[in-house]
């Protein structure tokens, strides 16, 4: 850890300013830099005449949203959900199934995806949150796989093979999203919006209670909180956010399959969060970028690219428990 015990001669901290503003500001600056760079991608794609770049980065942004939502419960609630990809799937299938029946509006897709995600999160969360540690991991994994097999068995919607979309979602009757760059900026907008939302939540009263349950659930009970309620609410919020990424993923790929929901995907989301920096929000975003770019590049050289990714993960965790975000904070001399 970078924080060393405070020397007793240190000037007393002013009680009026316990907010650690500077660090907060630097996070804001980092977020601005990352999102600002992202916004340039379609421009670069245009200049380099490589339209694939925009589509590829849309996918990265989609997973950044999913990883961000996972960090909310993983980083701030210490809830290691191994079934988070299921929620991405709910959003994706909301697009596929509704479109199939002629309902193509993205707002309906979003409402349906979020609705299913919320119901599933309430039901499975209420059960999973009765357990701790490894049991929580196993039971969320089991529920995730249940969802996976459910959609595998839906032969009317492609079953195992998945289903191609006839087109992207419409926006109030227009086919705006048909343009790759529009879909890109809509996805980036969603990511920025959800990042700001998540940042507000973790700093709110609710977020402080959630972080408290992560630190010590017994202490929280002893001052009058019932951790279960707050953990369940966080679980539901994270699921709903992930389903939004699913709606966008279906649009990016114009194809939906149960593979989106498999435990591999859930594991990959966890890797993104840990690699990027657990409990930093921005870390999930960075993790998604790094993992997916590594996947892209490493898979060119070898089919065993996952091994390369594993190696990178081990190195990062060994040298910076707070992931890439922690590395940057140390390099820039933040902390205390």
């Amino acid at each position: 850890m970078s924080d060393s015990p405070a020397p007793t001669t240190a000037p007393p901290a002013s009680p009026a300013a316990p907010l650690r503003r500077p660090r907060l500001f630097s996070r804001g600056a980092a977020a601005l830099a990352i999102f600002g760079l992202m916004a340039l991608v379609p421009l670069v794609a245009h200049l380099s005449d490589d339209p694939f770049l925009t589509v590829a980065f849309t996918r990265i942004l989609v997973f950044a949203i999913a990883a961000l939502s996972l960090d909310l419960i993983l980083g701030y609630g210490a809830l290691v959900s191994f079934g988070h990809a299921a929620y991405v799937g709910f959003g994706a299938y909301a697009v596929a199934i509704l479109s199939r029946h002629g309902i193509t509006d993205i707002f309906v897709h979003l409402a349906a995806g979020i609705g299913v995600a919320v119901i599933f999160a309430v039901l499975t969360g209420a059960i999973a949150l009765r357990t701790r540690g490894v049991y929580f991991i196993m039971i969320t994994l089991a529920f995730g796989q249940m969802a996976y097999f459910f959609f595998t068995s839906l032969s009317a919607y492609g079953g195992d093979d998945g289903i191609s979309l006839r087109g992207r979602s419409t926006v109030l009757g227009t086919d705006l999203l048909a343009h790759n760059s529009v879909l890109f900026y809509v996805t980036l907008g969603a990511l920025v919006g959800l990042y700001l939302l998540a940042a507000a939540v973790v700093n709110s009263r609710f977020g402080r209670v959630l972080a408290g349950t992560r630190e010590d659930a017994l202490r929280m009970q002893a001052i009058g909180f019932r951790p279960f309620r707050y953990q369940l609410a966080a679980f539901v919020i994270a699921g709903a956010m992930a389903s939004i990424s699913g709606v966008l993923l279906a649009n990016q790929a114009e194809f939906v399959s149960p593979a989106y929901m498999s435990w591999h995907r859930s594991g990959e989301l966890i890797v993104m969060v840990i690699l990027g920096g657990i409990g930093t929000l921005l870390g999930g975003v960075v993790g998604a970028v790094v993992v997916l770019l590594l996947e892209e590049w490493l898979s060119v050289f070898t089919t065993h690219w996952r091994m390369g990714l594993g190696l990178v993960l081990i190195l990062v965790v060994l040298f910076s428990p707070k992931g890439i975000a922690g590395l940057f904070e140390r390099l820039l001399g933040r902390g205390k």
């Binding site: 907010l19 700093n203 709110s204 402080r208 707050y230």
Partner: peptide, 13 residues
Amino acid sequence: GSSFRFFGRADAE
């Protein structure tokens, strides 16, 4: 007050 408040910095209350 309620702790189901999702906005506003708790640290700044």
